[in-house]
């Protein structure tokens, strides 16, 4: 079984592909990456390993029974690779955003609109995460934006090693903006740092006001909250202020944008933020 993506079998690992490209499995490459991590991991822990040896010597009467005090963070592998991604982005002056939400909140539509409106000013690259299909990547490719699709198979979230592989394949140019659209899931992706500069959670007006406190981890770890589908407000029984109130209880630092990716309403505020932050990260 694959220890990083949680997929059921070796053949079920994430598949990274470009639109129009013959669909083939990168399972092997992915697992190759694993052994590379192992290497790092061994180096990083050589000291504590020595300590354990000493420890076991002091308990030699215990026969073969040894206690290894390892104190290791279970997410350490993901965090190490996320840090490597972050260093890569910083060196190439890439502003990376991780877009997270439940399925159907309008992440891809928001992305399409943003890319279409800003592509003349900003060089964009896109990584699409879905369990199956190239549909989202095809939608982005139709806008002439370089895009890579990661199909996670049974996996419910993107992890930093998948982004690492995808970024290499995407050949992202310096001074660009990288949009990573995570798998539609309001729970699992919250625990996995991809190395992004900012995390953006999208919630739509059709989802229910108390979603932020039902799924607090995602709102806690995000920097920006985009409330999408505000054009539907006359038809849904929802108060945007209540969404914000709940979200601020979880994360008082959240910044909000209220938009309709379909009509374009409110998109300007989000664009201004994007351009401003891109400049700020240039230093």
């Amino acid at each position: 079984m694959c220890g990083t993506c949680g997929c059921g079998t070796e053949n079920n690992g994430p598949i990274i592909s470009k639109p129009g490209e013959k669909n083939h499995s990168h399972g092997d490459q992915h697992h190759g990456e694993h052994s590379h991590d192992e290497h790092h991991h061994h180096n990083g822990h050589s000291h504590s390993h020595e300590e354990h040896h000493n420890h076991s010597h002091t308990h030699e009467h215990d026969h073969n029974h040894k206690v290894l005090e390892i104190e290791q963070d279970i997410l350490q592998n993901n965090q190490l690779l996320a840090a490597r991604n972050r260093g890569y982005f910083e060196a190439k002056n890439i502003f990376a955003l991780n877009l997270v939400s439940s399925p159907g909140s309008g992440k891809t539509t928001l992305l399409e609109r943003t890319l279409a409106d800003l592509k003349a000013e900003i060089p964009f690259y896109v990584i699409e995460g879905d369990q199956q299909t190239l549909n989202d990547a095809n939608r982005i490719a139709a806008l002439d934006i370089p895009v890579i699709q990661i199909n996670t198979g049974k996996g419910c979230h993107l992890e930093s090693d998948m982004v690492y592989d995808a970024v290499k394949k995407l050949n992202v140019k310096d001074n660009s903006v990288l949009m990573i659209e995570n798998v539609g899931n309001l729970v699992c992706p919250s625990m996995f740092d991809l190395g992004e500069n900012k995390r953006i959670v999208i919630i739509s007006t059709t989802e229910g006001e108390d979603k932020p406190i039902k799924y607090p981890d995602m709102f806690y770890t995000s920097d920006i909250c985009i409330i999408n589908k505000i054009d539907l407000l006359p038809y849904v029984n929802i108060n945007v202020e209540n969404i914000k109130k709940y979200a601020l209880q979880v994360n008082p630092k959240l910044v909000f944008f209220e938009v309709s990716a379909t009509t374009g309403e409110g998109m300007d505020g989000w664009y201004q933020w994007l351009k401003k932050l891109k400049l700020e990260y240039k230093n």
């Binding site: 220890g3 990083t4 949680g6 192992e38 290894l68 390892i70 592998n77 979230h157 729970v187 996995f192």
Partner: peptide, 18 residues
């Protein structure tokens, strides 16, 4: 079910340390 990823991460740590 990211708990599966977590469990497999635990297995990997245990395998490496053992």
């Amino acid at each position: 079910m990211h708990e599966l990823s977590i469990a497999l991460g635990i297995v990997k740590i245990a395998e490496d340390e053992a």
